[in-house]
Design a protein around this nucleic acid. Structure first.
Lengths: 259, 259
DNA sequence: GTAATAGTGTCTTTAAGACACTATGTA
DNA sequence: TACATAGTGTCTTAAAGACACTATTAC
């Protein structure tokens, strides 16, 4: 049986208040509390590869391994606000697509102390995050390629560096990345999320490549075009891409029909 | 700007360690930590109504209002284990379908102290939970009907009692219930989840009624039958339901094809 | 002109909706 | 036998896959 921190009698009124619980109600802080952090899975698509922003750890434990940017949640700070703060302070980004992913709370997931992590995932066009990383000139931050076996669910992700070398993920971050990719794949089918990874104007090929990269498989070109045009979320600009060495495609913008 | 609890320098190495962060690394416990609880959305379908198990609060705040069963997460207890403990100790159930839903962390969601709640949702056939509630003879626990406007997403749920009277939900639990129903509706389309709400043997009508109740709309009878039989998750038993006052339907069992 | 991809038109396939029709246990 | 729902068969509709064919820019 685990040690349990009960408290605040009325929160657990279903059983009737035992004396132990009654006393606990006076001071919930008598019980040890876990730390709560947010970890951010910041993803993008670059040259047909799915990438995530990771940081190299320079202290133990897991020194030299790669971790997701994270930070502790302030006592007066909402989870969403903490995630946006991490996005801003660790990746130098703001106003990206971001949403809560899942909470990870195995007692031993961080060997130093009990840390419950609420993971978020964020999407940003590759040039934005690429610029942010390169402008620092630091070698302990990286856009690493993320690969997750297709077809299976709930598998860990694998990280790869610029030269295709395998990178080790710290803590349980391989699993967090795996869950993030699984969620991203699922959401592609029923929400307008691919646009978050593209510049304002893009061709239908650009959009399809984003989808194919995330899903890890080729999509039917004709059906994809029909489905996207029928979704009502695309506005043709009348302009064409240029200098592509072949017939240029029309540029579109994302503009949802329902305001 | 919110007060922020940073700590464990290496966890936030992206920015380089400021002196403040360096000091924080020595003792993460210097910073106030939120309490972490799990809240359980235990749902069932009964007589074409979607129901949730709720408890009447007998102390302030929100005295007399109805809340989800919950409990604090032990310092050595995983989130999943805490949720299963709440299921066991508050609802007297075990071995039900249960999965993590979402984490709620608005600083003011509990007026007493900062509590971050990791919500879980569980599904159980109506007779099992009905028996558990009635056997206690208590009037501060209830299966309440849950209604969520259909078509919209991310709306609060409304709770109703036995006589159709509106019940007030405590804290942010109306929102948690709304998120739970939204998740449940979404999962119906691509996972074998309706079976969790039925006895071992059931008719295709039983299964359709469960789906219709959750989705809040009628489904096409023929298409539903075809789709379910084609899913490969149903095994005909050869037996028929009895005493239904009309032609009896065949009984099926859930048995997934992929082992 | 050629290369290469954009974009269109059409046939096939698959699944859902609609609906008529037959089947059968209970009262 | 009548009732009410189970279950089947078939036509229609909508969307995806397949594939042939035309269009257009870079070179």
């Amino acid at each position: 049986m685990h040690q349990m921190a009960m408290g605040l009698t009325d929160h657990i009124s279903a059983e009737g208040a035992s004396e132990e619980e009654f006393l606990a109600a006076y001071d919930a802080s008598r019980f040890p509390r876990p730390s709560v952090a947010v970890d951010l899975v910041l993803m993008t698509v670059q040259e047909r590869r799915l990438m995530a922003f990771v940081l190299k750890r320079n202290t133990h434990p897991d020194r030299g391994m790669w971790s997701l940017p994270g930070g502790f949640v302030g006592i007066d700070e909402s989870l969403d606000a903490a995630a946006e703060r991490v996005l801003r302070t660790k990746a130098g980004l703001s106003e990206t697509f971001i949403e809560q992913l899942y909470s990870f709370g195995e007692p031993a997931r961080d060997p130093r102390t009990r840390v419950i992590s609420v993971a978020y995932f964020a999407l940003v066009p590759a040039p934005r995050i690429q610029t942010a990383v390169e402008s620092t000139g630091r070698d302990d931050m990286l856009l690493a390629e993320v690969r997750v076996r297709v077809g299976t669910s709930a598998t860990d992700a694998e990280l790869f560096g610029e030269n295709g070398e395998r990178l080790a993920a710290a803590f349980d971050h391989a699993r967090i990345l795996g869950v993030a990719v699984g969620r991203l794949r699922g959401r592609l089918n029923y929400s307008a999320i691919g646009y978050e990874l593209l510049p304002e104007e893009f061709t239908l090929r650009d959009l399809r490549v984003v989808h194919e990269t995330i899903l890890g498989r080729a999509l039917n070109k004709d059906a994809f075009r029909r489905r996207m045009l029928a979704s009502g979320d695309l506005r043709a600009t009348g302009r064409l891409e240029s200098s592509v060495g072949h017939r240029p495609a029309e540029l579109y913008r994302f503009e949802s029909e329902k305001p």
